[in-house]
Amino acid sequence: MKKEISALMDGELFEDDAESLLDRIGRGTDAHKDWELYHLIGDVLRQPDHIHCDLSAKVRERMRDEPTVLAPRSHAVKRKARTFALSAAASLAAVGVVVWMSQQIGTETFPPMAMQNNAMRPVSKDIQSKSNDYLMAHQEFSPSTDMNGGASYIRMVSYGSEGR
């Protein structure tokens, strides 16, 4: 469950899975708590000026206390909301068309694309793993090693260097 939530936040979940997960988050209190906690962790790591803390309960409370205003103005708001909904539907449809098109296009377009990629390859995995040796040699003489200690060496063994 936790893994799925984290994947959803990274946008790595397929649409069906995401939908059912969002459904569960909406219902289950545990999943909902995890969802909020993960966002809080993300926020703290990004160091914003203000950290998100769960305001939803408070907002709901205040909303309950607000008197309901029955005024013709609400009509305009509603229309605006419908336009949004429509444009969202339109973009969804557009995505659908693109997906459909990419499925229809045959495999013959792939070889040239692959060749192009090969010619461009600005940063290949080989270079990444080779550059580790330079990073390592550099690190030992950097003042940052004096401050961070061994933690600076994490750069060399992080995921990016698996190809070694």
């Binding site: 390859r121 940063v123 270079i127 990444q128 550059s131 992080s158 990016g160």
Partner: peptide
């Protein structure tokens, strides 16, 4: 190959 790479 010439290029710019970064790690953190």
């Amino acid at each position: 190959v010439a290029g710019l790479t970064s790690r953190g």
